[in-house]
Structure formats: structure tokens, C-alpha cells
Amino acid sequence: MIPSPPPRHRLPHSPAPVSWQDEPGTPDRPPGPGFWAVTRHADALRVLQDPATYSSLPGPGELPLLRRLLSHQDPPQHTRLREHAAGALTAERVQRFTATAHERARALLTRALDTARATDGVLDLATAVSAPYTALNLADLLGVPHADRRRLPGWTGPHALEDMTGYAPHLIVHRRRYPDDDLTTVLAHNARLTSDELEMLVPLLLTTGLAPMRDAAAGGLALLAEHPEAYRELRDGSAELGSATEELLRLHPPLLTIRRTAATDTELSGRRVRRGDQVVVFLATAHHDDQVFTAPGRLDLARTPNPHLSLGAGPHLCLGADFARLQLRVLYEEVLRALPELRLAGPVPASGSGVTDEVASLPVRAG
């Protein structure tokens, strides 16, 4: 069971950088076993970089399907499979998406703006732009056939994992029969990968590339809408978009937590952690560590260095980190070009999930 923490970077009680948190039951959820909350950047990095001590294997009570995902494997199997995927997701393949991403973002923005100006003057950047933009980019990267793309919105719901692991074998068979210039084709024709291994890789790319990218894109735009001076700096060129993208990722990580299980008795920041204990890294809290980030609550578009952990760290550093940064940078460029001002037209409701940092809606003025 993945713990559901409180919103953002606050915990019910965190008297120490590593603190035990009980998991009382709720009307729709049984009590959990409790977990160690890791809130300091140095401790978070230690956990994420040490898979021998802090395992990614699913813990007791977690979905058996998780065992079929690369993200829930440990070295050496994780290392070998990751190398195959990284070899397919080359820098050249990522860069080839630049023009397509620009065209897609521009087309979605144009359509949303035209609709808004013909109606009430409000467009929802989350549902009308960032969600379809990131989903269709992923579909292109993985070679999801156009006839199947109607499934994408449902792959961020409560049964997303089951749906995507069920779909992956069909996609693999399709791309073996009809190869194209996409990641699934490359992996499906890799003779060194077994069918079981492929069925670990493809669902991982779907799960990590869909909802997290959607949430990162909308979250960054929400921050800019809440900080009009920062938006103006990007518009007039006094702030650089590369460093700004990293800062937006720091303040709005697409995942709020990363879970590990202690593989052995150990000690973390003076706390005795027993084998089998759940250890949960709170990313937003680690990103507010004033020992690492000066004025951590401030949006600083020029912040450097910016060692945020939003794309992971250690062996499980996001495979598609370059693809993620490309998508975000392109989307922000097109929004800056299309909207002289980014003015909120209503509240920005969050999903209420304790695991992802979804922006459910981002209503802004069309101008």
C-alpha cells in the first residue's frame, strides 16, 4: 500500500528529518502499517541512491501487478533492462520530437483560444492543452496506433495500471507486425529482451510518461499563473526558460512521494529502520530543505544549482528525463507566445490525491 500523505509538503508531525508516521484507517481505507517519512534532501538522496538497502520491490499489500513494472525492480535486473530502454530512447530520437511538439502545442492552444473567445473568454489550460499535449506526445514516442489513442484519458484513472499492463502485449505484437519509427518498435525487435521483460518496460513507459508529465506541465503553468512577475520575466527574456523549467519542477513535482522498503536493518538520520519497514521520501518537503535551497519557498527562475529530485535520482532516475524537459520547455514557449498575460479565471482545484500533484483544472483568461 502506498501511503497517502497530506497535501504538499506538510506532515501531521515531523519532529525530525526522519519520523515515524502512523496510518490510521478511514471509511474507505483500512489502517496501514505506518512508514518512515523522509523529509530532508540529504536523506532522500541517500535512500534513492542505495537500492541495496532501500528496495523498490513491492511491499506487502501492494498490487501484484507492480512486480511487472521496471520501476519496481532492483539491480541487477533493473540495470540490464534499463540499459536496453535507454539505448532505444536516444538523444537523437528525443530531439526529433521538437518540431512536432511545437506544432501540437500551438494547434491545441489555437483551438482552445478560438473556443474561449467565441464563448466566455476562459480556457482550461489543463484539460484543453497540457493533458492532450503530453498524452499525444507519449503516444507518438511509443507508437500507439491512432485507433487506440481514445484509450489514453482513461489511463490516468483508478484502474490505469491494470489497463496499461493489459494493453502493452497488444502494442508489442502490433509493432512487431507493423514496425515504425517509435520506441516500442525498437524494443519489440530487440532479440535480447524476452516477452516478460518487454511487458515490464512498455507499461513503465506508459505509466511514468502519462499522468506524471500531465501533472508536471499543468503544475508549472499554474505556478506561472500565480506569479505574474515571473511570467513577465520569461516573456521579456530577462529569465531563461531552461533554469525556469527546473525551478517549476522543484516547486511542483509530479509525484509527491517515492516509496522504498528497507531490505535490511539500517539507520537513517539517527533512526533505527527495521528490515521490511516502509520508507517514504517526501519530494516537496525535500525541495523545501533550506540547507540545500536558499529561500526554498520562493519561485526563483534563475536558481542554480537546482538539485531537485522531481525526476528521481540514483538507479531509478527517470528514463525519459530529456523527453520530459523537452516537452515542458516547448509547451511553456508556446504558452508564452500565445498569451501576453497568464491570468487565472477561477480557482485551481487539485486532485486530492496524496501521491500525485495533479492540477485538475487551470482556467485562465483568453486575453
Results as ranks from 00 to 15, higher is better:
2 I>N: 08
9 H>A: 07
14 S>W: 08
19 S>F: 06
22 D>R: 08
24 P>V: 13
24 P>F: 08
25 G>P: 10
27 P>K: 09
29 R>I: 02
33 P>T: 09
42 A>P: 07
43 D>F: 01
48 L>G: 12
50 D>N: 14
50 D>S: 13
53 T>H: 09
55 S>W: 07
58 P>A: 00
58 P>Y: 01
62 E>Y: 03
70 L>N: 03
71 S>N: 06
106 R>Q: 13
127 T>W: 00
136 L>K: 00
138 L>F: 06
141 L>D: 10
145 P>T: 09
149 R>V: 03
149 R>H: 01
152 L>N: 03
155 W>M: 15
157 G>D: 11
162 E>T: 14
163 D>N: 10
163 D>K: 06
164 M>T: 13
167 Y>N: 02
178 Y>W: 11
179 P>A: 02
189 H>W: 04
196 D>S: 09
202 V>S: 00
207 T>E: 04
222 A>S: 09
223 L>C: 02
224 L>S: 06
226 E>L: 15
229 E>M: 00
231 Y>M: 01
236 D>C: 11
242 G>M: 01
245 T>V: 15
246 E>C: 09
246 E>G: 05
248 L>H: 03
252 H>R: 08
259 R>C: 07
277 D>T: 15
280 V>D: 00
287 H>Y: 01
297 G>C: 12
300 D>Q: 08
300 D>A: 06
301 L>I: 07
313 A>F: 08
316 H>R: 15
317 L>C: 07
319 L>Y: 02
324 A>K: 02
335 V>M: 09
340 P>D: 10
342 L>Y: 02
352 G>L: 13
355 V>C: 03
363 P>R: 04
367 G>M: 00
